[in-house]
Nucleic acid binder design. Sequence first.
DNA 1: AGGCGTACCTGAGGGC
DNA 2: TGCCCTCAGGTACGCC
Length: 286
Amino acid sequence: MRLEPFTPTQLLLGIDVPELPEVETIARGLANAITGKTIESATVLRPVVYPEPVRFGKEIVGERIAAVGRRGKFVVLSLGSGRRLVVHLRMTGRLIVQRAEATDSEPYTNVVLGFRDRTRLCFADVRRFGRMRLVEPEEEWASDVGLEPLSRAFSFERFSSLLDGRPTPIKVFLLDQRRIAGLGNIYACEALWDARIRPSRPAGTLSKPARKRLHISIQSVLRRAIELRGTSIDDYVDAQGRRGGFQNVLSVYGRDGGACTRCKSPIKRTVLAQRGTWWCRTCQKH
DNA sequence: AGGCGTACCTGAGGGC
DNA sequence: TGCCCTCAGGTACGCC
């Protein structure tokens, strides 16, 4: 994926194929850029919102952005009324803050929220998979979203019990957002390499030491990726003009044929659950 | 219930 | 040059 260069008047907060570290980076950037602002206008250009566009617009105008956070791969904008605007970027979604005088609007824009101070938030998405949903204060929108892997709730015991009895390949398990929320293809592959575990290994058959390593690896890979502000496969920069940095330290993802940094064997690409899977056959034996 | 296959969507890149 | 074709990815949905 490659996108048009953007003007200096735009603050780019989107990164390709957002997983937990990218969504966290986007949410932090948004928190800085729009917390406290009041929505003055809403333009829905594509029907990727809930409720339907007309009602969505009516409901959201006048709301103030009280806070911006993340849950799994969802960006969560908490609004003054207690409602929340929940955004999933899926594959190519981007949340971009622009100044109103920016002449070029973001390409592939779905929704524009205009603020009283004449800045605006654009929700753009080339592939139109992303969704934006207004959630009522009492509404339980995240009941299907699994454990936050960087929270205290993600204890070894909880993690291990989720694996028990599961015949599904461990990599497929890691991608299941109902169990653990936030891992996508990149960080699932990276965590398994770090823990020296074969991606096709049935989840429930992992030994206790392997489970311990994976529990640590999931957290350390995600923490490091957040520190590096995510993975930019293409030439993106963030709100401060900086690229994500994790693409420079990938161990396996997308490195088909490259040398394993641990054992020098070639990295292999296979397919699991219709997903590209990169791993080292020599050192991922557990 | 859980696991699997497919649809969704579009640009990039390869083959001829 | 340009036209096909395939691929990539996360999630929802229908099916067994």
